[in-house]
Design a protein around this nucleic acid. Structure first.
Lengths: 188, 188
DNA sequence: CTTACCATGTAAGGCGTTACATGATTCA
DNA sequence: TGAATCATGTAACGCCTTACATGGTAAG
């Protein structure tokens, strides 16, 4: 229940992500979801079903505040981080990382690939490759954009770091796809 | 509820992993867990709390059978895959991959790294790097072993494929760690 | 003799997704 | 006028981990 130096109750990751986003700018739940689907998508995801309840919690616990930001009849709730929220975020950032987790169904299917046959294994690799090839350009685009604002905003340097991670791993994935198909092709 | 060409009720991944392992050899629940903690650990994990109940289900559904394999007083339940189990596994392998998912808390903390400061960001990167450096030798060892049995057993070719994936990505991770620290060091 | 490993399981609870429900506005 | 996007939320359910509970054996 208590992990030693950890003073924080139970840092739910969703809370931390939201607070992190709010620490940069005020946002609506909808906008938070959009950030998750773009900037964070390569290493973290969340659905409305977890975002909205979390926002309610955050406000209740005094880590964020909610205000009405309706514009010409379109209802909108804008959230801001509080001082306590910033303190909470800072405390979480100081804690060591608990878990980095990768769950690739593609690798699972490949591991048992013998039972499905070579052609099927290659199909799975191709599907994987296409997905990566489709996403890589977005990362490359983000890299270019971010490098231009490099010394305009410190925040972007950290963002760039995660983009570089995505690019490097995606490129490694593509190299693997090529090799893997060759390996399978050799013995057919 | 129904994903088109998918005849299978709801292919729970845990069932598929277990069937996959059982398709290679008969195993106890304990041994299945060990496989997950070694060979599969780089891309899939599971706890006893999910393995044992799943094994029970599999037997109930006729996809596996259970037999007593007690040895000198040590109780042991050995599971085997059935013909239906093999058919189920084959059907699952033929379906397209639904989701490959990566959740790296390290990247999350880095994304919001500005709020924690440069030193902290570097600490997180170093911790990540150490973890990778500790695990890479196991993958390299597995690679060597597998390459020796390459044409002895077709099954091992597929296993090798996943090991190569691990090696390639881990090497990319290490390259990124180096670059990331340089990037942070530059502007201090 | 005690630590590590072998071995099986359950119960509670956490965390999150999917699907549902609703409704306004903007753009083509 | 219809589709896409903006916008907020709930309910059901699924899936899994953690912690608990138990007990035998092998090795040092």
């Amino acid at each position: 229940m208590d992990k030693g130096k950890n003073i924080m109750a139970t840092e739910k990751k969703i809370d931390c992500v939201i607070l992190g986003l709010l620490s940069h700018e005020d946002l609506t739940g909808y906008e938070i979801k959009k950030r998750m689907d773009t900037a964070l998508k390569y290493f973290w995801g969340a659905s409305y079903g977890s975002i909205y309840p979390a926002l309610g919690d955050l406000v209740e616990r005094g880590l964020a505040t909610k205000r009405d930001g309706a514009e010409n009849g379109r209802s909108k709730l804008i959230y801001s981080i509080t001082g306590e929220g910033r303190a909470y975020l800072k405390a979480w950032l100081a804690l060591p990382v608990e878990k980095d987790e990768l769950r690739y169904e593609t690798l699972l299917k490949l591991f048992f690939g013998k039972d499905g046959g070579e052609g099927q294994a290659i199909d799975h690799i191709n599907a994987f490759q296409e997905k990566i090839e489709k996403e890589l350009p977005y990362l490359l685009g983000a890299e270019k954009t971010l490098k231009n604002v490099f010394d305009m905003d410190e925040t972007h340097k950290y963002y760039l770091l995660t983009v570089e991670f995505g690019i490097k791993t995606y490129e490694a994935y593509l190299a693997w796809c090529k090799e893997a198909k060759e390996m399978l092709g050799l013995t057919e």
